[in-house]
Structure formats: C-alpha cells, structure tokens
Computed example of a mutant assay.
Amino acid sequence: MDPIVEVVALLLGFLGWVMVGIALPNRYWKTSTVDGNVITTSTIYENLWMSCATDSTGVHNCREFPSLLALNGYIQASRALMIASIVFGTFGLVAALVGMQCSKAGGENYVLKGRIAGTGGVLFILQGLCTMISVSWYAFNITQDFFDPFYPGTKFEIGEGLYIGWCSAVLAIAGGSCLTCSCKMGTEEKYPMNYQARGTAYSHAPSRSVAASTYGRNAYV
C-alpha cells in the first residue's frame, strides 16, 4: 500500500468524522423566516433535538423535543443514523491508525495491517453512507413540505447543518474508498526461495585411466 494514499485517506476520514460531530449538534438543520414589521419578524430553526426561535431584537428561545416517540419517524431514524455514523467513524479511525504502515501497532505483519486498514476503510464508507442517508432523508421531508401547497404548517428551508453533513459524507466515502481500494487484503508475504539443484553435482569427471582400471571389477566386491 502506498503510504501517501494511507495518509490522505486517514485525513479525509478524520475530517469527515469531525464534521459529523459538528453537524449533529448544529441548530440550523432547517430554518424558516416569518416576515412582518420590525417587531414581528422572527426566525424559526430546528435540528434533531430542539426547536428554536429568535426575533429581530436578537432574543432567542429554544425548546427541546419533549418526547421521542411523539417525533416523526424520519427524525428518529436520522438520530439513529447520525449516532451510528459517529460510532463507525470512531472505530474506522482506530483501525486506520493501527493498519498504517508507518504505525508500530500490530507489529511487522503487513498482511494483517493491510486487512485492518481495509476494515477501517469499510467503516469510513459506512459512516459516510449513514450520514448521507440521514441528511438526505431530512432534506427530502423539508422540500416535500415546502412545495406542498396544501401543507398547513410552517414551511422550512434547508439549513447549514445539512450542508455540513453532506460534506462530511463525501469526505468519509472518499477516504474509505481510497483506503479500501489501495490496500492489498488478499496478498501474502513473499519470501525469496533458494534454488536447490536436484541430484549430485560433480566438480570433475573421473579420469580415463581410473575408469579403465575399474571396468572389469565385480560390482559386489
């Protein structure tokens, strides 16, 4: 495996993991601006955990969702996927650090280290897929309600938290793909084999006189 590819893949996976940690608590997963006069203009924004509102004077108030079971199904699923994404990314980072050639962990067995690094790449890909599904599903529900002319509630738009999540997913999938494709998980260590000639090698042939003197002897004597 190319050490440069390992380092690049590790950096991409680490950046994706950090951005998941930033996107998860971000409050602006969806935003809505209620325009009125200077007094009544307010902004409403939500994420997976709470709903907040702020007015034109800068006063804001947040309310956490009181019940998990009362939430919409896509919010519950997005929560689970984002938490699973962080878990996959954590184990992926550990596996990538152990499997790198420049790492002393795991000894000198480069076949085993390559397989561990490949496992880390798969975990990075799972992290990216979980994040991508979560933010895309959330964004789909936002756009569905926004373009529905019969939707009676507040219409929201896509917030910055979803864009951070999309960037995180792309980085994690790219890093995991580089790490998985570059490692040679099926190869074995090859050692040089010493060539041994079959039979007995003679340094010189017997002289003609010796061969002539022993020609008539009994082989059993």
Rank of each mutant, 00 (worst) to 15 (best):
S85N: 06
L81C: 10
N72S: 12
A77H: 02
S67C: 07
L93Q: 09
A96S: 15
S78K: 07
L81F: 13
A80T: 12
A95P: 02
S85C: 12
L68F: 13
I86T: 14
I75S: 02
A77M: 05
A84C: 09
Q76W: 06
L71N: 10
V94T: 13
L68Y: 13
M82W: 04
L93A: 07
L68K: 09
A95Y: 05
L81K: 08
R79F: 09
G92K: 00
F91G: 00
V94L: 14
A84K: 02
Y74H: 11
Y74K: 03
A80P: 00
G92D: 01
L69P: 00
L69F: 09
L68N: 13
F91V: 02
S78V: 12
G92L: 01
F91Q: 01
I75W: 09
L71M: 11
T90C: 10
A77F: 03
Y74E: 08
M82K: 12
T90N: 06
A80I: 14
L68S: 14
F88K: 00
V94F: 13
L81Q: 09
V94I: 15
Q76N: 13
F88Y: 12
G92P: 01
L81V: 11
Q76T: 12
G92R: 00
N72F: 02
Y74S: 03
L69D: 07
T90G: 10
S67K: 10
I83V: 15
G89H: 01
A77Y: 01
T90S: 13
Y74W: 11
S67Y: 11
A96D: 14
A84G: 10
A96N: 14
G89F: 01
P66E: 14
F65H: 14
A95I: 04
V94M: 13
G89C: 04
N72D: 15
I75Y: 09
L93M: 13
A84I: 05
I83G: 05
I86P: 00
V94R: 05
A95G: 06
S67Q: 11
A96T: 15
A70T: 14
N72E: 13
A77D: 07
V94E: 04
M82L: 15
A70R: 11
F91L: 07
L69C: 05
I86W: 02
F88W: 09
S78F: 05
V87T: 06
P66H: 14
I83E: 06
V94G: 08
Q76E: 10
F88H: 03
A84D: 05
S67D: 14
V87Y: 00
A84P: 05
F88Q: 01
I83K: 04
L81R: 07
F91M: 04
